[in-house]
């Protein structure tokens, strides 16, 4: 039986003809991997994630999810297996209540109301926000919105979770709560962030991007403890390492 994986080969992407945002990106991610994509602002982290989920198909190279090439015809099939959490929860949550938003994907996939109900309960329980089920989105705090955003993709029961800057705008308590929740998931996770402490706490592998290129990839410890490497590419050691 095949196991879930993403295979990216020679990925090149440009918003404009002469300005490549991603240059020859290749990596392989397999089941249970938690990969942190790090880099300074403008390194191409968010673009890479958006390409992985097929939000733009005008790229060169190949992206394969469990041997299925990412292209227009396979988009629906691949998206069923992938959940993408936006940096801005406001963009992710567009229905009126948490319940309606979490039920949006299962309904689109034609599940029965009974199954939709089960999926919604499962997703809310996973992120420990069952009590927010009926709450209007506009009455929620930033931390609650982030957890609700994650629930909206968990209701699709994805194999792969992609997250763009998940720790942005979270207070320390909500941030810690999110880290704990993410560590409970055994999905293949790809998290783009420049919050290196967050990456340290949630990922076992790191891909370091600079100027749209992978400059280094390896274990989290190997990369995030290398001060010289990080500074060379516009980053700094995680704060937790300074304390030690």
């Amino acid at each position: 039986m095949s196991h879930i994986h993403i295979d990216v080969e020679n990925l090149i992407y440009a918003y404009e003809k002469d300005h490549q945002v991603l240059k020859d990106i290749s990596f392989f991610a397999e089941e249970h991997d938690a990969i942190g994509v790090v880099g300074a602002n403008g390194a191409g982290k968010s673009t890479l994630l958006k390409l992985l989920v097929g939000l733009d198909l005008n790229f060169k190279g190949s992206i394969r999810v469990e041997e299925i090439p990412l292209e227009k015809e396979t988009l629906g099939k691949i998206r069923e297996r992938m959940g993408y959490v936006f940096q801005d929860s406001e963009a992710q949550l567009f229905m009126t209540t948490v319940e309606e938003d979490v039920a949006f994907a299962p309904r689109n996939y034609g599940l029965s109301e009974g199954e939709v109900e089960k999926r919604v309960t499962y997703a809310l329980e996973k992120v420990h926000i069952e009590h927010l089920r009926k709450k209007p989105i506009y009455k929620m705090s930033g931390g609650e919105k982030k957890l609700a955003s994650i629930a909206t993709i968990l209701s699709m029961t994805p194999d792969i979770i992609l997250m763009d800057e998940p720790s942005v705008a979270l207070d320390p308590k909500n941030r810690r709560n999110l880290i704990n929740i993410l560590n409970e998931f055994d999905h293949l996770k790809i998290i783009a962030s420049h919050d290196l402490d967050f990456i340290m706490d949630t990922c076992n592998r790191v891909i370091l991007l600079d100027g749209g290129e992978i400059v280094e990839s390896g274990s989290t410890d190997e990369i995030l403890k290398n001060e010289e490497l990080l500074e060379m590419h516009g980053l700094e050691l995680p704060l937790s390492l300074y304390r030690k």
């Binding site: 989920v53 801005d88 039920a103 109301e113």
Partner: peptide, 25 residues
């Protein structure tokens, strides 16, 4: 920009042009 993001969020979650509204039982 915001509308584009919302639309992308809908597409990622299987939106194909029709809102499926809760069926009343």
């Amino acid at each position: 920009d915001r509308a584009q993001e919302v639309y992308e969020s809908m597409c990622i979650r299987g939106f194909q042009g029709e809102f499926f509204i809760r069926k009343r039982n």
